[in-house]
Design a protein around this nucleic acid. Sequence first.
DNA 1: AATGAAAGGATTAAGCC
DNA 2: GGCTTAATCCTTTCATT
Lengths: 196, 196
Amino acid sequence: MRDLDETDLRIIELLAADARQPYSDIGDDVGLSGPAVSDRVKRLQDSGVLKRFTVDVDRSQLRAGVPVFVRLTVDSGMAGLRERVSSASAVEHLFVTADGELLFYGRAQADGVRDWLADLIGDADVREREVSVVDDMEWTPALGGVEFALTCAECGNTVDSEGETERLGGDVYHFCCPSCRSRFVERYERMEAGAE
Amino acid sequence: MRDLDETDLRIIELLAADARQPYSDIGDDVGLSGPAVSDRVKRLQDSGVLKRFTVDVDRSQLRAGVPVFVRLTVDSGMAGLRERVSSASAVEHLFVTADGELLFYGRAQADGVRDWLADLIGDADVREREVSVVDDMEWTPALGGVEFALTCAECGNTVDSEGETERLGGDVYHFCCPSCRSRFVERYERMEAGAE
DNA sequence: AATGAAAGGATTAAGCC
DNA sequence: GGCTTAATCCTTTCATT
């Protein structure tokens, strides 16, 4: 894997702010030509860092219903439940925790929250459920500044092309060396076993 | 406000899937010319339905740390806390509930979760806190099919240009008639007063 | 990674329904 | 008012260095 450098990160930042701006404008900002930016974007897409070009929609103007945050404690049937919730078009953000909770944000018809939830839960074994009305919501594609870099998940040092990679719980982590990797994996597994 | 029609919704859907595709391709799909699509996109942006063109980044490849979901029950100081959390670059999703909880998803250094949280909380009065490791996360810009329409938040009927609009908790709702509007507002306020 | 030529989109303006 | 077509301008892509 080729290293990501500051220029790549700046390009991502600019695309996050406006994904449809010309590559030549981005080039002006980072001191590259348009084609050079295009090449980098292609590489970023191939490596999976850039997942997709998309659009941020103010759904409150489009879909009926009250915005709610739902928390379910799931004893069994998580896989199917996750799929049902994920494919529900009223659900926009979804999180699965290591200790078996399914959290999601979506919009429910004001007079049908109970039925809506019952449909989603289906035959999954849900021990606890909690629904809150959401006042305010924010998703931030804008990337921060200085903390944003390809760093070792264990020690924070920069990861270069000699680095290692580990997939844990669906995410990819990078490490600068094998010892950082094994230390991190151990700690992660401990955290997962007995979450705070 | 001009009505949104099926074509607008389809355009949004296509842009959500690939925001950088040519307008003429979108036009082929919806049966319009490129310039017509361009016009509609401009209108959608002006009306605020399309908030921005952006990029979905796999941050797991970029930032160190364990993905965590944090839940804070806040007695006072929510406004400042919300701002601090929102501007933290490691925080990507944030929700504020009507009953004074602040929920967010971000990435913490594995060995510094406590300090990271303490910094974010600052002088806010937080009664309870809970941190969970996140196994799986999904954000869905893809819009569903049939449920996706400009509908009355109360009765589900289509809202036309005669419709009314109400802003509640930072979101905009649409109604087909004044009576739906007042019924919805009442129910919303009840939900907010005593959330489930 | 830059350059320059060729191809392909976007935007504008004029005209139609 | 919203659409289309045609012309212009700009962006992207590709071959070359």
